[in-house]
Amino acid sequence: MKTAIVITVVVLAFILALDLGAYYYLKDTAMSISQNIEALPEKIENEKWDTATDDLNKASNNWSSVKGIWAVLINHDEIDKIDMSLVRLRSFVQYNDTEEAMAEYNTLKMLVEHIPENQRFSLVNIF
């Protein structure tokens, strides 16, 4: 009986710690990627395509470094969606397409920022 209680408490503590750790890791890294592309709308509107490409490179490198850990924590579909959005945004910036680039920027920002929100322990996410 004692063993069962110990195992239950250890497993509960492990799940709780993993959940908290995962949530704060996802929140921090999502914020960092968001910050990488924060200045993009202004640069796209002013057609500063070179500096916009630099920002995108920073965001891509940042994304590549965290992607492996995100893959352990969240649905792989979400990762694929971010990958695709980044590729599309890069193409629109490369071909100087202001309207499409702005639309894709907003999509990418939403995709990245909603991940930690989806992992949060809340009634909305449970039901």
Binding site: L16, A22, R120, I126
Partner: peptide, 11 residues
């Protein structure tokens, strides 16, 4: 994780 844990418990 806690979301899945709670859903599993409820079901």
């Amino acid at each position: 994780m806690l979301v899945i844990f709670t859903r599993a418990l409820i079901l």
